[in-house]
Design a protein around this nucleic acid. Structure first.
Lengths: 196, 196, 196, 196
DNA sequence: CATGAATGAGGATTCATTCAT
DNA sequence: AATGAATGAATCCTCATTCAT
């Protein structure tokens, strides 16, 4: 119970302050618990953050995998997957913004507070997530629905647009807002902006 | 002269360490100067960072404005502007990654180390930069080259893709890499991925 | 039973880590018991340590007293008592090293973690132990076997040599190693190093 | 100046409290300085302690080396060297008590707060110091003044007696107390306690 | 201008002890 | 009797900033 209180408080504080500026003191104040309690459940501030990310993304990853496995027309599948992404990132925008920053050190060892091992775990999650997009695009190409292109880059591009829409606050948590924006993104991604 | 040494050192350190983990001590060591000297030229660490960003982006903004003012076919203009963006972000990837993180709190007051006033200045730069994209798209729509869409969102989407390509290391500093990637991004943005 | 498990574990942990660095967590892990259980049997970490010392030294003190009471030629008695000391300290070297450190503040109130009352108890044990050596030396002087000297200092000197030999690892637990070293120490203590 | 104030305060606090219980806060309070200042001069609490030991022992080691090099009758030399030892340890008793404790982990890695590298430096000092005693004894044996014995053990024994006398408070800082005790120790070490 | 010694607020982490079950 | 979740006081260390020279 205390554990969940701490995770909830940590979510709020990390989301608002970022990793560095979040203090354990503030987390415990919000969780209404003692400082030692945090360290009973989590080995360190870093570990607490990692656990938070892992627990928050578990359902999303399951849903994503389920969707990827469906037998579905590629263009439909793309729309659906965009929607799933939007739903997840809208619900977790603030925390993922923080995570993505701490992950940025994909080349410089020294650029985050995280250990190399920890960062690698995060990276694998991202690689897998974007990998699902790649797989769907690749299937689309093979079925002739998508024209041949660099799926790796295209998947990253699509991913970045989704995330940006959320981070910029263009999408709110309403179901129809998500639906509309998913269609919007899919529309341009699939057909481009050129008039015909 | 000292001033420039400090800015150069600050660029390196901020780029590698991020804002938080960059220390004034490290900057002065690299700049081969005294700690007090930094505070003679810059009111604070934050101010130093801001100055750095401003000076680095000055030429880019000039170039961007020049380009926006040209009388040019919209589709060509879009390609050109993508290239200018790529050139700038490739050259400044590390520092802008840091900047964008510190900017992330576009809603939460407490989310960065920066003062509200400072953040507002940064935000205005971004708004203006993306605004150029919007203007170009809008002109394209009015000329019938681009189909009607939410230019605000579309501009943000395009911007996010450009930045993502750079941050993910898909684009290197070679002129032809930039050219190729610019064409690639433009191609999908303009025509979509659907086979025809 | 739990009580003994705790004492055994405490012995190992205190011996290896010293008083300060030994943690109750480590002790209970090794004792395979719960944290509360420790506090059922021992009022505090300090009390646990004290009990440990008391129980480990009980047999030694009995043996020492028995030996002191024997009717024996002084020089022989000295050799025997040295051997008994060596046997005890070899078997308990690590823990006594720790004890002696925590006792070091024989003048400064603030120098250990122990309460003044607790320290006084330890001190009495040492005083008594060394007192046995003094008594034996004094008897030797009275019988003319030992030349008059400050028995208090001499006893401390002899004690320090014995302890040092053990702490420096010059003596191992083998019976003959103990025998040989006891003879060695006795030889120099009794006859000096000068050639004749 | 601040540096010396800090060292002086550190000496007092370490001496009274031991390494572990000495707090940086207490040191700065006594040194009348800020916390950061300590860390400008010394990388860590451990480094501060090490520096303290090094500076305090420098003169002693020089004097010891000088004495060892003198061309002198062995028995006289032994008396002189005992006196030099007493002088040094009387002046630094409290700090060396602490040092010797932190050094105790000559077998167990985990037993002190000090890093292995740091401990090795301390150990070398001790080895060298006792080595001087060994050299002097060895010379005495070769000149026939001392009877053959294990000089390594004998040197350690002599060392331990000297240290014990000081730590037990048998020797005070008065020149004649030192002189008297040096003679006393030398007398028993050289000629033993047996009556003749 | 240039310097760097001095500062202290702030923050992560440890661990002995308590107490309800 | 046995347990272990909860606690918070205590402590080391960092680093932006100031100011006298």
């Amino acid at each position: 119970m205390k554990r969940q209180q701490i995770l909830d408080a940590a979510y709020t504080v990390f989301s608002h302050k970022g990793y560095h500026r979040a203090t354990v003191d503030e987390i415990i104040a919000m969780a209404d618990t003692g400082k030692g309690t945090v360290y009973n459940y989590f080995a360190s501030k870093e570990q607490l953050f990692y656990t938070l990310v892992k627990e928050r993304s578990a359902k999303f990853e399951t849903e994503l995998n389920r969707l990827a496995g469906l037998d579905e027309v590629p263009l439909i599948k793309i729309k659906k997957v965009i929607k799933v992404f939007l739903e997840f990132y809208v619900a977790n925008a603030d925390l993922w913004r923080v995570l993505m920053h701490e992950m940025r050190g994909l080349g410089h060892e020294e650029s985050t507070n995280f250990t190399a091992a920890q960062r690698e775990k995060y990276r694998e999650r991202f690689v897998h997530t974007i990998g699902v997009l790649e797989t769907i695009l690749q299937a689309g190409i093979e079925q002739g629905a998508i024209r041949p292109c660099d799926v790796h880059k295209a998947a990253h591009g699509l991913f970045s647009v989704i995330v940006m829409m959320v981070f910029q606050g263009f999408v709110d948590a309403q179901a129809d807002s998500i639906e509309a924006n998913a269609n919007n993104i899919a529309d341009i991604f699939l057909y481009g902006v050129v008039a015909r």
